[in-house]
Design a protein around this nucleic acid. Structure first.
Lengths: 196, 196
DNA sequence: CTTTTTTCGTAATGATCGTTACGGTAACGA
DNA sequence: TCGTTACCGTAACGATCATTACGAAAAAAG
């Protein structure tokens, strides 16, 4: 019962996501958020809670809507295909939107005041979870003989994500998709193969 | 003539550098700066100008004091040694100080409010200048026959810096020096060589 | 229609942001 | 010693920060 919401919650969350993506957590103000969403401050609070809760919901949405290539990658048959899919899809995502390039997981909060520490830690955990999934996939690849015995799944997973992070930094700096793809090519050229 | 300064300008600049390194430009307040430096606000303004000018001076100092391994690397005889020196020294720097890990060029301002845009752009230019130096060195290597004709100096330079940026992100997330060195190993594992 | 419940916008909260008058103080030149 | 010059800390500036009372408005329930 009671009055209905007059705005689309998902649309508002999308507008917040775009802002956090472009300006980061600390750099995005409620003035920005309300202007982009077209609603007033209290409506944001009642719908999402405070700023940190809103950011976490935006991060969830980011994961679902834009990082859906990760579960797809993990199902590919070889570790090399997994790595390639992640790298090239990351490049595509980092350069898809000219007004918010790079990656929310990086832009969101690399460094900030002490009050933003929980958000920074949330992004660290978020990235670590992704890395763990990739590492497990590479452990399976090793067990299946797809990766040599000398390969370290942990190192390879960290290497792949280091590449995506580095390219996210460069995408935010304005690097072209072509250049980033060439960088991804170079990264993949180091991929270990099972010696016959 | 007139009264002398009662504080050491370089020490104060160092304390500011450490703060910017850890909290970034936007995340560092004058309350932080004055507390760390042990001087009052107007003293900071009279000695360095406003916050942006102070950050730029801190960035200069960072370059001189901590990025001195770059000119050293560029003088090494082979492109592979250049790349290896940059990667391993970057890892060392990113993990040298437990209370401000990572890289000022990354932590300083990945994303932020519109007012911080000049600082963000300054860091982009700063990183681009370093990449250009490395690219020139690799072009020389190609001319000398140290790199194959198929190699792209631009791509290789961008790749090396993407690696350092990605590892800086991971260092800020708490990665160990050993893990980062293993990642650097992987990056170097297929450095292009002149086919004989 | 009346009551209840929820959302709405207005407008304010205290805190903190970067920046700066201003008066007191110390060291130089004359 | 006196006047000039520059630095010092105190204390404030207006602006913006995230957050929230509060009352009007609207829709469901009775």
């Amino acid at each position: 019962m009671g009055r209905h919401r007059e705005f689309d919650v998902e649309k508002v969350l999308d507008s917040a996501l775009c802002l956090f993506w472009r300006k980061g957590y600390e750099g995005t103000s409620y003035a920005d958020l309300t202007e982009a969403a077209g609603i007033e401050r209290p409506a944001l609070y009642s719908a999402f809670g405070n700023k940190e809760a809103l950011f976490r919901k935006a991060l969830d949405r980011y994961s679902e809507r834009y990082l859906d290539y990760l579960p797809v990658a993990l199902k590919l048959p070889t570790s090399r295909e997994v790595a390639a899919h992640i790298l090239y899809k990351a490049v595509e995502l980092n350069t898809r939107f000219p007004d918010h390039t790079g990656c929310l997981g990086i832009n969101g909060a690399m460094a900030g005041s002490d009050e933003t520490e929980p958000v920074r830690q949330a992004l660290i955990d978020f990235r670590a979870a992704g890395q763990a999934e990739i590492q497990e996939r590479f452990e399976r690849a090793k067990a299946e003989g797809d990766l040599p015995e000398t390969a370290s799944p942990e190192t390879l997973a960290a290497f792949i994500l280091a590449m995506t992070h580095g390219m996210a930094v460069q995408a935010k700096a304005g690097f072209s998709r072509e250049m980033l793809n060439a960088i991804a090519d170079q990264a993949l050229s180091t991929w270990p193969t099972k010696s016959l």
